[in-house]
Design a protein around this nucleic acid. Structure first.
Lengths: 341, 341
DNA sequence: CAATTTGTGTCTACCATTCGTGATGTCGCA
DNA sequence: TGCGACATCACGAATGGTAGACACAAATTG
């Protein structure tokens, strides 16, 4: 592996000159330029990215840590959409993505701080789903830029984040069902320890109470974001007889698929008898029968915006922070219809 | 940001002593050890990963470049499975994954060589789907380890790769259909420029000819791995009337979903009248109706093996190469059944 | 001819790690 | 007291590309 010095010797110039030729932002005569480039080519010289990073204090990578042992992050297309969104914005600007794994949610924090502290990346996207106030506070204390995907657990002015307004859009999804004449509506949430679960539940509750509909605690289940979770929610709710819901809202598509499966087994027609709404608009929504009405959460777009804020903070070295909401969209398909009389 | 020197001054020791305390593999008295650690904590010192990498000539990252503009890599769960597999093996060994984007298949090669040459990662996983002999030859000339996902376009002894035996398992999938009594079987391949497409087609052809079944060129279509591609294949093949296939093999699940959709629209019963087999066993196979019989390709396992070979090459600094096949499995579900009389 | 521009050399700091060399101090033993 | 064995740690160099400051010669301009 040849270094910048080898090239300098072969071209008969000083190492600085070689560096200047490669960086391009200095006045170098045409002649020495070709001499240097010739030497570099003959020696198969490529600048060492690590040495370069050490000098310019920039790695041109942005990091993300995911709990890779939970397949949920992959099944529901959350992670791939995020990476695609990050790449969409970061790639044209010369950045790559560093993906760190983690064993658990607490390890996720350890890994995040390791990357932040060791400066292995110029900035990092942090999943805020389970963060507490202390952790976010500690992140603010250090000086590598970061952006939260989701809101922090407290109201900070000096923390950047990108989020979907989960409460508002769930409210609207429930309102859509109410508009179709449904009165008994089920809420199937994910992991109750995760922030998004309670956010959506608040949207559900406020839509129901605003429409002055009765609310039954047995219409609320937590399916932990899994297919099975949706399936078992149906088992329990269909036992309610006359009080069984005529519509289900599920906080992700996987649970909605489980709900569809449960209803199909029981011979319940969708959407003739019961309506179902999922969340995320994963690819499979178009392949199931009936096609699934779903609340699209633009994770790729969220990630792209996070990358934008991050790269801004990195390159302008400003400490300005920004908070952004992205718009969700209710994708109306075949799984929802008017409430039967 | 404090450096190892600041800590050394505060603790009253030499910088190399601080380094030895942190690396742990040197005899340091209990007393200086605590003095150093105290000073480090007070100064909030974290070793700079870049400087460390420069010195030890190791970044503890393995890279992968994906053409992020083609959503196919994400839709069919190829990329997420690969990343998960890489992390499963690499994370416990202290490695992270560097993901590079690329604009096109030729840019993919540029990006790959950039990472290899600049030593931004210790090793790299390369998708071999469209590689030519020259490119692989050039990769062999440099000295950063790499492993191909898929076989190289020529028979090299000194190139490591991990692959599924696509020809063999497609052969077996077709044989399964033949065993069910099917005689007119369609092959819906992906992009014909991609190696896997012709590999599977060979498996299809040899199963057909071994069973001495007639082969019709109109039973072969290229759906370019998209849902639409499968859908249009059905449109064309159902026009064949008596010669229309009674079974479809699709080289990925997405095309199989398109086939299911096309058949459903035409009122063709699956599996009563026509059988369908997909490939990859993506999550949606369980959510469609009927559930999809599919040839599972263990991408996560392939990636984990690639990571294993890579880390072996990195840490042992050996130039030994290995070639590995992974086993596929035909997941028999509801979309296949006996050929109608 | 003086003044300016252009092109290049020289040097330093960035920063953690490793290795060899050597200095210092302590302990045990004779 | 003297000596060897050992533990502990200081010291300096090398790793490697970059940026900025400065010097200086040659070429160009006014």
């Amino acid at each position: 592996m040849s270094t910048i010095r080898d090239v300098a010797i072969k071209a008969g110039v000083h190492p600085s000159t070689v560096s200047r030729v490669f960086s391009g932002n200095a006045k170098i005569s045409q002649e020495t330029q070709t001499r240097v480039l010739d030497a570099a080519q003959k020696l198969d010289f490529h600048p060492n990215a690590i040495a370069r990073s050490l000098s310019v204090k920039r790695t041109c990578t942005i990091a993300i840590v995911i709990p890779h042992i939970y397949s949920g992050y992959f099944d529901d297309e959350f992670f791939p959409q995020v990476v695609q969104g990050l790449l969409n914005f970061a790639y044209p600007r010369g950045y790559r993505i560093l993906v760190g794994g983690s064993n658990s949610h607490s390890d996720e924090i350890v890994q995040t701080f390791d990357i932040l502290g060791s400066r292995q990346a110029d900035g990092i996207v942090v999943l805020s789903n389970r963060l507490d106030v202390d952790t976010v506070g500690a992140m603010r204390e250090q000086d590598t830029p970061f952006v939260l995907l989701g809101r922090p657990p407290a109201h900070y002015h000096d923390v950047s984040w990108v989020d979907a307004d989960n409460e508002r859009y769930t409210y609207e999804a429930i309102n859509y069902l109410i508009g179709l004449g449904h009165k008994r509506i089920a809420y199937v949430g994910g992991d109750p320890e995760v922030a998004v679960t309670s956010e959506r539940q608040r949207g559900y509750a406020s839509a129901m109470s605003q429409a002055q509909l009765p609310q039954n605690p047995r219409w609320i289940e937590y399916g932990y974001f899994s297919d099975e979770g949706g399936y078992y929610a149906v088992q329990r709710m269909t036992e309610l007889g006359d009080e069984a819901p005529t519509a289900y809202y599920a906080a992700n598509d996987l649970m909605a698929f489980g709900i569809l499966r449960g209803l199909r087994e029981k011979g319940v027609g969708v959407p003739e008898q019961v309506s179902v709404i999922g969340t995320n608009d994963s690819g499979a929504c178009l392949h199931v029968t009936p096609t699934l009405t779903t609340l699209r959460v633009p994770y790729a777009q969220m990630a792209a915006q996070a990358a934008e804020l991050l790269i801004q903070a990195i390159e302008e070295e400003s400490t300005a922070c920004a908070q952004r909401f992205v718009d969700c969209e209710l994708m109306i398909r075949e799984s929802t219809g008017p409430c039967p009389a």
